[in-house]
Amino acid sequence: MTFDAVVLAGGRSERLGGRPKAQLVFDGSTLLERTLKAVQDARQIVIVGDPGSSTVPITTIVTCEVPRFGGPVPALAGGLVAATGAVSEWVLLLACDMPHVVNAIPGLLSHRAGDGVLARDDDGRDQYLLACYRRAALLDAVDAHSGALAGMSMRALVGTLDTTVIDIPAGSARDVDTWDDAADFDILPNTGALHD
């Protein structure tokens, strides 16, 4: 089961007062390190954003979205073009702010069909940043919207793709957007440096 992974680790983290989500520490590891461990079986891993002090495998590609802080769609586009060599047909896309994301990955990889498979969270919401997409379908969608990617939502980008939605284990998609979310995971607010 071959796949590449694009991990989104950018953004301003405005609701966290500018503390990068990737650098928050949960259970002894940063959220980015936990995410990288969850996708360690990927053929290629591309981080879009600043890994900061996180331990990143030497084979991991690090890039930035253009424009910086342009949102998830430019980040995805940057991650797709940063991949090198023999790329995989399937791309696992995930944000770095879900401490228990590892539990969702086997289901996403095993249900690949059509243009992709999206996770559905505990509240019944489709998670466009926790999904496995066919690379060609993503590239076509990005090309169709070139010049208008900044600020675009993932839903707008992939809304016309032939995707399947699957339920994932409870809590897998719970993310850290605010300090209240962080407190639910016992993440302390003094971890991580402020964005420039």
Rank of each mutant, 00 (worst) to 15 (best):
G107R: 10
A183H: 12
M1P: 06
A136W: 05
H100L: 13
L108T: 04
C64V: 15
V87P: 01
P169K: 09
A113D: 13
S172V: 04
D162C: 08
A5Y: 04
D140N: 11
V117F: 03
R34D: 02
R19V: 15
A42Y: 00
M98D: 01
D162I: 05
D123V: 13
D140L: 13
D162Q: 13
W179G: 03
A137E: 03
A148F: 10
S172W: 06
D126H: 10
Q127S: 03
A119Y: 07
V87N: 10
V56F: 08
R134Q: 06
A86C: 14
E14V: 13
G11H: 04
S54H: 00
H195I: 15
S110P: 00
G52W: 03
P67F: 09
A131Y: 02
A144P: 07
A42E: 04
R12M: 14
G151T: 11
R15K: 15
T2F: 08
V48H: 00
A5G: 04
I45S: 11
D184E: 15
V48R: 05
L149D: 11
A95I: 06
D186G: 12
A119P: 00
L93W: 00
R19N: 12
G10S: 06
D4A: 05
A113Q: 13
V176A: 07
A182C: 12
L76P: 01
A9N: 02
G116P: 00
G10T: 02
D4Y: 03
F26N: 02
G49S: 05
A119T: 09
A38G: 01
C96R: 03
T160L: 10
A5T: 02
R174T: 09
A38S: 10
Q40P: 02
G116W: 05
P20Q: 14
F26M: 01
G10Y: 07
G147V: 07
I61K: 04
L118E: 08
P189H: 10
G49W: 01
V62F: 09
R135M: 09
G78F: 02
S153K: 13
G124A: 09
T191M: 10
M98E: 13
A183Q: 12
G78Y: 01
G18S: 06
T163A: 01
T63Q: 06
L31V: 06
A104T: 00
V46I: 10
V101Q: 08
A150H: 08
A183N: 14
C132L: 12
D122R: 04
L92V: 06
D140Q: 14
L32E: 05
A170N: 12
W179F: 08
V91Q: 00
R125H: 11
Q23E: 14
V48G: 02
A9D: 04
A83K: 14
K37D: 13
D181A: 05
V7H: 09
